[in-house]
Design a protein around this nucleic acid. Structure first.
Lengths: 232, 232
DNA sequence: GCAAACACTCAGCGAACTCTGAAAGATTGA
DNA sequence: TCAATCTTTCAGAGTTCGCTGAGTGTTTGC
């Protein structure tokens, strides 16, 4: 999946930085701009594979940007970023074809997952796997389904995101701060105690079905999802 | 991994010196500045591989510095240094991408370990190994796990740090003062007796599993981790 | 509009950890 | 050999850390 080019369009520098840093680290090639005109320009010159587009821009709205881009023959899918209170129909009107949308504030892990999902859908002949299987647990990311030894487990959205983040970093200690930054929305400013709570919830649901406790506590450091099979 | 350039940004001269000396000794190429403006400048000119950045600076805070640096296209990971009591609220969003944070006061060994971890994560195609194996003992630094002849050993955080420090200087006598300076936080003002205590704890856990006592006492001098097998 | 599910906070308990001091043991030099 | 010094070990006080259940407010689905 190497060398996927992402174009980020958002007028808030904070969000732009957050996304740039985060997606670059996730292995994407990133270009970020702050308004619609630049976006059209960058889309033409940069040939992005996917576009993250804020719906509310200073010069033109996301709908106009998309229309302009599409009229130029650019078919890259668009992931719209929209405030939670935008009207439902306005959003649905935007998401045609391979497009999708996310409401602000989002969590970084979720954004990465969504991008992968979109790329998977558009470039269908893809090596990318939507199933994440580590140890005894299997996650179907398309269906948001979790299986422990082929038994279905019901998880709340937050529990699901937490588990997915832990499982995508097996055998590596993740600090509560890292977990908070990736799983919770970027403007969350509560305490880290919530991570403990959700780990507790997860264990209560998962442990009865597994042979050993899969989420380990590393006191003073953080948590680790353990997979005995093939370290690395 | 040679010739890694570290940029240190802290307004307290004591900390700056402490870090400079210590990191230089650890094999890094170091440049240190005392305020945000100089930091931005040095980041541009010096092309550092990693930046140690105090969150509280006289002229601008660490986030502004990061933002400015990132907007200049510099992607070097940042290790934030922050006071322990400003953690909770200010820490959110810090561990994005390859970035990380440490609370003051820190221990020097921990800082070095953290820098290595970050470099390992960011430059993924790296020779750097997260596994430290000397003699019969093996440490997986990602998982914070210790094995003696493939048997897991549970260590407390301090025991772990002490062992790691000893193992990273095999066949070399370390004085109690050195150990205190590297393993304990820099403002620790207790007695050296604590080193003796923790060596004792370590031996009690490790010796039953090894063929010979691995931590040797050099009376009147200090301690040494012995490795019969070709050091280095 | 109601009930169920969910997100989050908080406080209390128990366990783990850090550190100190003191006693017992080992080593050294005279 | 003896005394002084250094080292080891241990018990215990004080603290921190993590887990969990109870409770509140919010969202979701019927």
């Amino acid at each position: 999946m190497e060398n996927v080019k992402v174009l980020i369009v958002d007028d808030e520098p904070n969000i732009r930085d957050l996304l740039s840093t985060s997606l670059r680290f996730a292995g994407f090639s990133v270009h970020a701009v702050g308004n619609g005109a630049d976006a059209v320009n960058a889309a033409e010159k940069g040939a992005p594979d996917i576009i993250l587009l804020d719906v509310m821009l200073p010069d033109m709205n996301g709908f106009s940007v998309t229309k302009k881009i599409r009229s130029m023959g650019i078919t890259a899918p668009v992931l719209f970023l929209t405030a939670r209170d935008e009207t439902e129909d306005k959003i649905t009107g935007l998401t045609v074809g391979g497009d999708d949308y996310m409401t602000k504030p989002f969590s970084l892990d979720e954004i990465v997952a969504r991008i992968h999902a979109i790329l998977r859908r558009t470039k269908q002949a893809e090596i990318e796997e939507s199933v994440l299987e580590v140890g005894e647990i299997k996650i179907n990311q398309d269906a948001h389904e979790v299986f422990v030894n082929d038994t279905t487990v019901d998880l709340s959205p937050t529990e699901y995101k937490l588990l997915r983040f832990l499982m995508s970093n097996p055998n590596r200690v993740l600090t509560k701060a890292q977990i908070l930054d990736h799983v919770w929305e970027y403007d969350f400013n509560g305490e880290m105690g919530i991570v403990e709570s959700y780990v507790s919830y997860l264990r209560k649901k998962l442990d009865p079905l597994t042979s050993e406790s899969l989420i380990q506590t590393k006191r003073g450091v953080g948590y680790m999802y353990k997979s005995t099979k093939s370290a690395k």
